[in-house]
């Protein structure tokens, strides 16, 4: 690791913003969830790092996040879908500052719905009453989670502003093997929302800092 960090500078990190078009059917049909807007449904925000290990090839990690914050019956909730790429990318420069790149990435993705509710906890209530307090309402937070595998491929165009900074646009697709019956809640397997995440087109814009 120290060798990689101190070697010829081929490490880069990026911040990104993207658009994609999943079908969040389960959230749209839910009577409790707020109807997804174009921001909560289609916007991706992410980051990543990559390391160039060959004149034309980089390996890297990138995370794209879609999230929603709101209230369900006055109780605050957050919903996140995180798409994690482990990419291998080859590239070439037809001109000095312009690069075309081609990415193949297996993905390990996750979804989380967390909600904070008010609950009366008998043991805490007893303890606090014992100290002379009135009856208590304890705030309790919990979440349901799931993970699934996926695959993405994209083609990108990068413009090198400086040797240490560049802009990139990528267009691609991702395939997700999401199964709504594999959510977990407090250790138990539960059914989550139906989401169609198959053949999802994706466009991202990145700002890349590299050495």
């Amino acid at each position: 690791m120290v060798g990689i960090l101190s070697a010829q500078p081929k490490i880069s990190a990026h911040l990104e913003m993207g658009l994609y078009s999943p079908e969040l059917t389960g959230f749209k049909n839910s009577s409790l969830f707020p109807t997804p807007t174009s921001v909560t449904e289609n916007i991706l925000i992410g980051y990543g790092v990559s390391y160039q290990f060959y004149p034309n090839v980089r390996v890297g990690y990138a995370s794209h996040n879609s999230f929603e914050i709101g209230n369900i019956n006055t109780f605050p909730f957050t919903r996140t879908l995180t798409y994690r790429e482990f990419s291998i990318e080859s590239f070439y420069r037809p001109w000095k500052r312009i690069e075309f790149n081609f990415t193949l990435s297996p993905m390990y993705n996750s979804g989380t719905i967390s909600m904070t509710t008010d609950a009366t906890d008998q043991e805490w209530d007893n303890l606090l009453s014992d100290f002379g307090n009135p009856s208590s309402i304890v705030s309790r937070s919990d979440q349901m989670t799931t993970t699934w595998f996926g695959f993405t491929s994209s083609i990108g165009l990068r413009y090198h502003l400086f040797t240490w900074m560049s802009l990139e646009s990528k267009i691609g697709f991702m395939e997700n093997y999401y199964d709504e019956t594999k959510w977990t809640f407090q250790g138990d397997t539960v059914t989550g929302p139906v989401l169609n995440l198959s053949n999802v087109p994706m466009i991202t814009m990145r700002i890349i800092f590299g050495w």
Binding site: S90, R93, P94, F151, I155, F173
Partner: peptide
């Protein structure tokens, strides 16, 4: 990096093919 070298073109072809299939 003005041209692909060795196996690197293979990654590009696979990527283009995957996008085409999608």
């Amino acid at each position: 990096s003005k041209s692909f070298q060795g196996f690197t073109s293979c990654i590009a072809y696979c990527s283009i093919a995957a996008v085409f299939v999608f």
